[in-house]
């Protein structure tokens, strides 16, 4: 495990645990990440990756352990407060605002940091938010679809809007939960390009099922299995790691899971 660089740390967890009845979804995870890093979290289905995101973003409350964001404790804070502090997330299953336009979707996210939402000013007069929304439309490449109702977008575009909404909150740390799920190969490549560009400006954690997607992209990869981090390091190292190969290529007594995922490790 990497030594903690507390002064520049953006996210840290201490013994983070989540139990659902008898099931331990996240098991005493000590995670740490520096400012500006692009981190990938990989692991087979049910390894606890999404639960880990839910704990950090406040969507779930941890059973044990603590979470620190930029040195401040955020454990047990409600999701809306965590968002306003600067952690944004996307969802594995697209979660957008279906019956309003693409523009309004991102707008909704872009105004939440304003402490007071003035009920007597017309939204179109708020030039600072307008500029931000337009900038984000440009980044996610939905500028020519800004007037469309979100539910009419293609699946790939809805995935991009999902990222756009998260960016709308102007985060320091962006949590991407399988952003390319269900995308075509071309869309996946384009989206990863966009993520790469974004990583120059903010810290990103990307959860991926498919290791090859993040191989070239990530600075560091953390591998989850059964709710624990079983390996962590630069992509090349992770690829060679025995325990990782075991998880992905199947060295377990019950290795159907491993074999199913062997194609993901290339």
């Amino acid at each position: 495990m990497k030594p903690l660089t507390t002064d520049r740390s953006v996210l840290e967890t201490e013994g983070l645990t989540k139990r659902f009845g008898g099931l331990i979804a996240v098991d005493r995870v000590n995670f740490s990440m520096r400012e500006g890093e692009l981190r990938a979290i990989i692991g087979p289905n049910g390894a606890g990756k999404t639960t880990f995101f839910n704990l950090i973003s406040g969507c779930l409350s941890p059973s044990e352990g603590r979470v620190f964001f930029k040195g401040e404790e955020i454990t047990h804070l409600p999701a809306d407060q965590i968002s306003r502090r600067g952690i944004a997330r996307t969802f594995q299953i697209t979660s957008i605002f279906p019956n309003i336009t693409v523009y309004e979707n991102i707008w909704a996210a872009a105004q939440t940091k304003k402490g007071f939402l003035n009920p007597l000013v017309h939204s179109s007069r708020l030039m600072d938010i307008r500029k931000r929304v337009e900038g984000i439309l440009e980044i996610v490449g939905l500028h020519d679809k800004s007037g469309e109702i979100a539910s009419n977008l293609s699946h790939g575009d809805q995935r991009l809007l999902e990222i756009g909404i998260a960016l709308g909150t102007d985060p320091h740390l962006l949590l991407l939960d399988e952003p390319t799920a269900g995308m075509s190969v071309k869309e996946t490549r384009e989206t990863m390009e966009r993520v790469k560009e974004l990583s120059c400006k903010l810290s990103i954690i990307i959860v991926e099922h498919d290791m090859s997607v993040v191989m070239e992209l990530a600075d560091t990869i953390s591998v989850f299995d059964f709710g624990r981090i079983i390996a962590e390091g630069p992509p090349e190292e992770i690829k060679r790691d025995e325990r990782v190969q075991e998880v992905y290529l199947g060295g377990r007594s019950n290795d159907s899971e491993g074999r199913r995922h062997s194609h993901l490790l290339r």
Partner: peptide
Amino acid sequence: ENEDRARVIGYK
């Protein structure tokens, strides 16, 4: 439109 998402982008 989406109560849960609204909460996650910062609305109380």
